[in-house]
Computed example of a mutant assay.
Amino acid sequence: MADSTTKRVTSADVARLAGVSRATVSYVLNDTPRQTISPATRDRVLAAAADLGYSPSAAARTLRTGRSDVVLCLLPDWPIGPEVGSMLGELSAALSRHGLTLVVHPGNRADRPMSELWKAITPAAVIAYTEFSDAEIAAMRSAGVALVVAVSRRGRGRVLAVPQELIGRRQAEHLVQRGHTRLGFAYPDDQRVRFFAEPRLAGVRAVCAGRKLPTPVGLTVPLDPAVAGEAVRRWLDTGVTAVCAYNDEVALAVLAGARDAGVAVPGSLAVIGVDDIPPARLSDPPLTTVTTDQVVVGAHLAATVVAAMSGRTGPELPAADIVRVVPRRSA
């Protein structure tokens, strides 16, 4: 049972243990510039804070500095797979190097109004993967909250996330370079990821159109070997010799479907996925896939947030340089 009499350790407790003033504790723990504090005093304060387990109050720091150190990332109702998880991890690490703390809220507007979320947390900045109304944007600006919209479907502002169409292009280009002229696209059965799937399919279609190849044959492929096997048979019946899958999970379903249908990969059907998840290296055959350098993506998004907080324009994302094919034996 928790002890209800336990009291929060304060800077006054640290000051008493270290034998210094509260102002000195504040200067040391906040690394305040232009203060003449000896190394011995600084070490004594840090040791006292560590011994007492003292953690400065975030609310007090916000009142003192006039700015929160929290960056709120609002995700739509997306499944948090390995790629999204990796991006969030890299973003968190990059923001921490700027003294900022990442808080992620997955969900959608039906769970809780976005305005309630940012007002409750009072962040320094909001990273959004969804659109905001003009009134919401104006309210954030009035509150001093920097807004970074990572993707936009209305053409407003710069797109900061990796263009999903580029990923589909990379898939199709790899297959076409290997002599395939009739492509298929394995579409996921999870409607939540249409936001990613549709532009990836558009990228595959664009490559085919540019090479004057037939329109890709798109089929929905659930994570079910028997149903995937039917899709594989339909692709072969229409002359498809290579399939771009929405992601590695769907690609693995296509491989399972090919085994179920007795179809050799890559002999009769080549397959390429997206994300380079660990099972992709362990499949039979190992899965060719497209990967994105999430270290660069996280650092870029963090730099954009920091720039937005100071009213500057952030850097350009070198998308073409960080999306690449990982060739293995499936294609």
Rank of each mutant, 00 (worst) to 15 (best):
A139D: 15
V145E: 00
S142L: 13
G157L: 05
V148H: 01
R141N: 10
V149C: 12
V149W: 04
V151W: 12
R169E: 15
G184L: 03
L147K: 00
Q177F: 08
G168H: 01
F185D: 05
V151N: 15
Q171W: 02
I137N: 14
A138T: 15
A146E: 02
A161Y: 07
G144A: 02
G144D: 11
E165L: 10
A172N: 03
E165A: 13
H174F: 07
S142N: 14
R170P: 06
V148P: 00
A150Y: 07
V149A: 12
G155F: 10
L166M: 07
L160G: 01
V162C: 04
V149M: 09
R169M: 13
S152V: 09
L166A: 02
M140T: 10
E173K: 08
S142Q: 15
E173S: 09
R169D: 04
I137V: 15
L147R: 06
S142I: 05
G168K: 00
R158L: 11
V159I: 13
A161I: 05
A143V: 11
R170K: 14
L183H: 02
V148G: 01
A143S: 14
L160Y: 04
R153N: 12
V151Q: 14
P163W: 05
G168C: 08
Q171D: 04
E136C: 09
V148I: 09
V149Q: 14
E173R: 11
S142T: 15
I137D: 15
H174D: 08
R169Q: 10
P163G: 07
M140I: 08
Q164S: 13
G179A: 09
V159A: 05
V149T: 13
A138M: 12
H180K: 02
V148Y: 01
R182L: 03
F185P: 01
R178E: 07
L183C: 02
Q177D: 15
A138V: 15
G184K: 05
V145C: 01
G179L: 05
A172F: 03
Q164W: 00
V149R: 15
G179N: 06
G157I: 02
V145Y: 07
Q171E: 11
R169V: 06
L183F: 03
G155N: 10
A139L: 12
A161E: 14
L160W: 00
F185A: 10
V151T: 14
V159H: 12
G179F: 12
A146P: 01
L183Q: 03
G168D: 06
G179Q: 04
S152Q: 12
M140L: 14
L175C: 03
V176N: 05
A150Q: 13
E173P: 01
R154N: 15
V176M: 07
